[in-house]
Design a protein around this nucleic acid. Structure first.
Length: 302
DNA sequence: CAGGTCCCCTGCTGGC
DNA sequence: TGCCAGCAGGGGACCT
């Protein structure tokens, strides 16, 4: 559920709280949280014990922990991949705090060598259990970047050095499908989910059902610029939180919901022209748009 | 092959 | 009040 800005908010919080700490103990409270781990909970727990977290990385909506062991914190050749699914949270908790109802994984972390503060716990809380943790070997993606193997098919997100917007536009125009589908296709551009897809389409005045190979390069440039802009603005205010399901590692909400123009604003006036925002079903999800600013393509139009 | 559907879950809301 | 359909910010498996 969280999209790139929410995941990045969480990544920043994790980087501040857990890098440099050693994993003392891992507890798995729900098997679905580790369903993508070969060997299940037993394997994940055994392989994580004693490792030190050296970095927290992200591509699109995927997070992973770099871990190392020994004096030099040598990398063992794999990372701990974390995906939040629709409802996953990562929370920093005080040892002994009462469990959250949907607590799925608990990690006890020792203080870092130069850390004056005491031990903390990292909690993976996930109501709908679509998220999960698993260990994954390193691999090299199409752009030559080292990422966990299961992430090689995920395209770079707009904030990565290897993100090539001109190339993404070429790929989009080579397809014959609806533009919103492509924005949500993580193998083309990653990090965009339903909120930021609707917001970007609104900013670029494009209807989500517009067919990709009939949209001009300048228009697609405008759209992808809007994608990066809207996500950058959202990161700056801690992401979008409609409810307590989307919070940072300290349990706090983000403020971008106040800046949304179309998503979740069915019946409210379009901030540009005042026409009520319309919600329609698309790809088994709600799509929000301004029926005046964002026109679907006419049948037979050139 | 690429595009499009379905389904994995839990919990909340709104209509009858 | 109770029940139930519908819906939620994701993505992988599986069809065609």
């Amino acid at each position: 559920m969280p999209e790139l800005p929410e995941v990045e908010t969480i990544r920043l919080g994790l980087a501040a709280h857990i890098v440099g700490r050693r994993i003392e103990h891992v507890e798995v409270l729900h098997p679905r949280a580790v369903r993508r781990q070969a060997g299940g909970a037993v394997d994940l727990i055994a392989r994580l014990r004693g490792l030190t977290i050296t970095d927290v990385r992200r591509r699109g909506k995927y997070l992973w922990l770099n871990v190392g062991s020994g004096e030099k914190l040598t990398d063992d050749g794999w990372a701990v991949v974390i995906h939040l699914g629709m409802s996953g949270q990562l929370l920093i908790a005080e040892p002994g705090a009462p469990d959250e109802v949907h607590l799925r994984i608990r990690v006890n972390l020792a203080p870092g060598a130069d850390d004056a503060s005491g031990p903390v716990e990292l909690w993976f809380v996930d109501q709908r259990t679509f998220g999960g943790w698993f260990i994954d070997d390193w691999a090299i993606d199409a752009a030559g970047v080292r990422v966990p193997e299961t992430i090689t098919h995920i395209a770079p997100d707009p904030f990565e050095p290897s993100y090539d917007q001109a190339q993404v536009i070429t790929r989009i125009r080579a397809k014959h499908t609806e533009i919103k589908r492509v924005l949500l296709d993580q193998t083309v551009i990653s990090g965009v989910g339903n909120i930021y897809a609707d917001e970007s389409l609104w900013r670029a005045r494009l209807h989500g059902t517009r067919v990709t190979d009939r949209i001009s390069r300048p228009k697609l440039t405008e759209l992808l610029d809007a994608v990066a802009d809207v996500m950058r603005e959202a990161i700056a205010v801690g992401g979008t939180s409609f409810d307590e399901l989307y919070v940072n590692v300290n349990g706090q909400s983000g403020y971008f919901d106040r800046s949304l123009s179309s998503y979740g604003r069915t019946g409210l006036p379009c901030p540009r022209c005042g026409t009520p925002i319309v919600r329609e079903q698309f790809m088994n999800r709600g799509s929000h748009f301004c029926p005046r600013c964002q026109r679907p393509s006419r049948r037979g139009a050139a």
